[in-house]
């Protein structure tokens, strides 16, 4: 990734913020006040930076899950389901086992959560490899199944006694500590991004994944088992999302509550696209979206601008990232490197 192509997202963000300012002004508020409040709520002091990274952590994982699957030409819309499955299982391990030292309990909870996500993600992979079932359908359907399943687990099996439907608070030994204001889980997410990047760039397995993504028929002809790649890629993608859910439960919220991370899985699509499916690009993309989420309430409080404006800005960013013509014009480049994730829809 050279400097010029890194410029594309930066320009896209700047343009989107400018258009967003016009919309805020048109709706009768001051864009300067709104953006000042947004920054105040997300980046002004250690506490708000901590909040931004807190929001960004599951977004990094959700974005990685989508970006990783894209590399094999798979479109994983099921990040949401894999995430909630990982989140509740990690929460159950976190509260259900006591008398374990921290050094074992916390990693164990994360590991089990990640594996649960991997298992959930592997189902569409297996169905595609053996039955040719389109992963877009199966991952969407499994999202709804996971939603009902975790709802049932939280309200019947692992419910905390009382009126609120949620699991009991995890044991202190399962908590992922904070480093000052910064949740340590964020560093785990960064490590996961680095691992994905290395796996894709530096290993034979990563080469096989990318070969399948570029041309499954050619990969098959070259002796790569496309079916194995489908299953393993989906499992890893699910594992990333599941780990994101586990970090959210054991590092930030402290328990599983139905609906607390609604939509996180879908944000992953936005982040992966914003990062142009590059594993390391996912990190700044997630921080950007995380900052918008963290500062949104401050913007509503101080400038009386609805936090949903950040959604409109996100959509605008994507438009500018996605359209090579605008970027080409901005950079005055003859051939902008174009982003394509749609090419493998039919395989």
């Amino acid at each position: 990734m050279n400097i010029r192509s890194a410029l594309v997202p930066v320009l896209a963000v700047a343009l989107a913020i400018a258009v967003g300012a016009v919309i805020i002004a048109l709706s009768g508020s001051s864009p300067v006040d709104a953006y000042r409040a947004l920054i105040e709520g997300s980046l002004s002091d250690p506490k708000s930076i901590g909040r931004t990274l807190e929001k960004a952590t599951p977004l990094v994982m959700g974005g990685l899950a989508v970006a990783f699957a894209f590399k094999a030409g798979l479109f994983n819309i099921g990040g949401q389901g894999q995430l909630v499955v990982g989140a509740i299982i990690a929460g159950a391990v976190g509260y259900g086992i006591s008398d374990l030292p921290w050094i074992i309990h916390a990693p164990l909870a994360l590991l089990v959560g990640a594996l649960a996500g991997a298992a959930w993600g592997a189902i569409p992979g297996v169905l595609k490899a053996t039955r040719g079932a389109h992963e877009v359908i199966t991952t969407i359907m499994l999202n709804f199944v996971a939603l009902n399943l975790t709802d049932w687990l939280a309200s019947k099996v692992w419910r905390e006694p009382g009126v609120i439907v949620r699991t009991p608070r995890i044991e202190p030994s399962a908590e992922i500590p904070r480093w000052g204001e910064i949740p340590t889980g964020f560093f785990l997410a960064v490590v996961a991004a680095l691992a994905c990047w290395y796996l894709l760039r530096g290993t034979t397995f990563g080469f096989e994944i990318q070969s399948v993504g570029l041309n499954a028929d050619a990969a098959r002809y070259a002796g790569i088992s496309v079916r194995r790649i489908f299953v393993t890629t989906m499992a890893i993608s699910g594992m990333l999302a599941g780990l994101g859910g586990a970090i959210e439960t054991n590092g930030i919220v402290g328990r599983y509550e139905p609906g607390f991370n609604a939509g996180l899985g879908f944000e992953g699509i936005t982040i992966a696209l914003l990062a142009r499916t590059h594993p390391l690009g996912v990190i700044p993309a997630a921080i950007l979206i995380g900052a918008m989420q963290a500062g949104g309430s401050m913007m509503q409080f101080k400038a009386d601008v609805q936090p949903e404006i950040t959604k409109i800005i996100q959509a605008l960013i994507l438009v500018f990232v996605a359209t090579p013509i605008i970027v080409r014009w901005l950079l005055n480049k003859r051939e902008a490197d174009e982003l394509s994730v749609s090419s493998t829809w039919g395989s």
């Binding site: 936005t270 409109i312 959509a315 994507l318 438009v319 996605a322 359209t323 090579p324 394509s340 994730v341």
Partner: peptide, 16 residues
């Protein structure tokens, strides 16, 4: 028109 990626275009509609 702008020959952008189709999946991104659809995601834009959803978020917007």
């Amino acid at each position: 028109g702008l020959r952008g990626d189709q999946i991104i275009a659809g995601t834009v509609l959803n978020i917007a």
